[in-house]
Amino acid sequence: MDPELIFHLPSDVLRIEDAVEKVVARCHRIIELERRASRVRMNLRVALSEALSNAMLYGNGADRSKRVRVELTITAKAIITRVTDEGPGFDYEHVPDPTTPESLLKPDGRGIFLMRRLLDEVSFNDRGNSVTLLLRRDPVRRE
């Protein structure tokens, strides 16, 4: 299925808010009446914000000349957002649990954890520079 939306951003965190709203607005046009629309409002916003922030700051090393690609695909069953950076990749398999007592007071390390808890599926490509966020749809049944 062709993506509903594709765009690129420079690695500038000031651009994250607008990018998130652009994706959410496109989703809402399509799934406004679904029971899970509230999950788009919060869960997708936060998770996408995390993915963009990771891509810009860690993937692309905050180098503004490097870009982040965002793809949104909406199928009958899910909203799928893919965020890809130009970096060397990220070791997504070794992310410490930020909720342990020793990690709780740390100011960082919650991004990937939140993505995984807020969405139905989070997957990375082998290189680790592209994350796919999947939120299942729950269409309202018409009688």
């Binding site: 914000s49 995390e50 007071l105 100011p107 960082d108 991004g111 954890f113």
Partner: peptide, 17 residues
Amino acid sequence: TGYIDSSGLGVLVSLSK
């Protein structure tokens, strides 16, 4: 407030300390 991301949570942790 609309939403808070992990950086926002992190700054609250750091300021609280």
